[in-house]
């Protein structure tokens, strides 16, 4: 599904190059559950962003389902990732002016899904995560765990083939974190969603079936 060839990314600071990623090669098959681990500054989030098409590499090729992402313009990339990829962030990043219902609904609006269909899909998602009673609340009124639930619901609503999660449990208590990871596990097992997560926690990494270690921008033994 995903093929990264020789991906490198750097920042130029007064003449020298500071490499964030060096010659990264990676292949991901559909249905895998991958954890990317490594110390701070090792380039984990950058790698995730490049996979998610939110950022581009300075060098190398990226094929997503045989689409040559590195050659696509922003508009086409947007089309791609909005169709296939869902993001979950450490800081949840919900839209504060919208209710839970509206937050979950918004990706569907951007994909021109019709009103009645939207309603059905959102209702289904609310039900699945058991947050129907909270649908008219605003993010400021929810706990961290609940907000992350909404974030995940939002990421899932368009039925993406790939979920990218950047330290999804980083701001949560251990119990809340466990709940979230269980959801990921279920998604992976029951629905075959490919999941790539960036995490510090060994415990979280254990949920996946493959671990990739990054150090100073390079992949170490997988």
């Amino acid at each position: 599904m995903i093929r990264l060839n020789n991906i490198s990314k750097w920042f130029s600071a007064g003449g020298t190059r500071n490499f964030v990623l060096r010659s990264v090669d990676l292949q991901v098959k559909p249905g895998e559950f991958i954890s990317i681990m490594g110390p701070s500054g090792s380039g984990k989030s950058t790698l995730l962003n490049i996979i998610g098409m939110l950022d581009d590499a300075n060098e190398g090729e990226y094929y997503f389902n045989e689409h040559a992402v590195h050659t696509l313009k922003e508009k086409h990339r947007t089309e791609l990732y909005k169709k296939y990829i869902g993001f979950v962030f450490q800081a949840y990043h919900l839209i504060d002016e919208l209710t839970v219902y509206e937050n979950i609904e918004t990706p569907l609006i951007y994909q021109d899904v019709k009103g009645a269909e939207r309603k059905a899909m959102v209702a289904d998602m609310l039900d699945r995560f058991q947050i129907v009673g909270k649908k008219d609340l605003f993010p400021a009124q929810l706990s961290g765990g609940q907000q992350q639930l909404v974030g995940i619901a939002r990421a899932l609503i368009a039925k993406p083939k790939l979920i990218l999660a950047d330290e999804p449990t980083g701001n949560l208590s251990s119990k809340q974190g466990e709940e979230i990871m269980e959801i990921f596990k279920k998604l992976h097992k029951e629905e075959g969603v490919t999941i790539i997560q960036v995490t510090h926690s060994e415990k979280n990494a254990a949920y996946g079936n493959r671990i990739i270690n990054l150090l100073d921008g390079r992949i170490h033994a997988a």
Partner: peptide, 8 residues
């Protein structure tokens, strides 16, 4: 955020 969740 909006861009990430799919707005062009």
């Amino acid at each position: 955020v909006r861009k990430v969740i799919g707005a062009d």
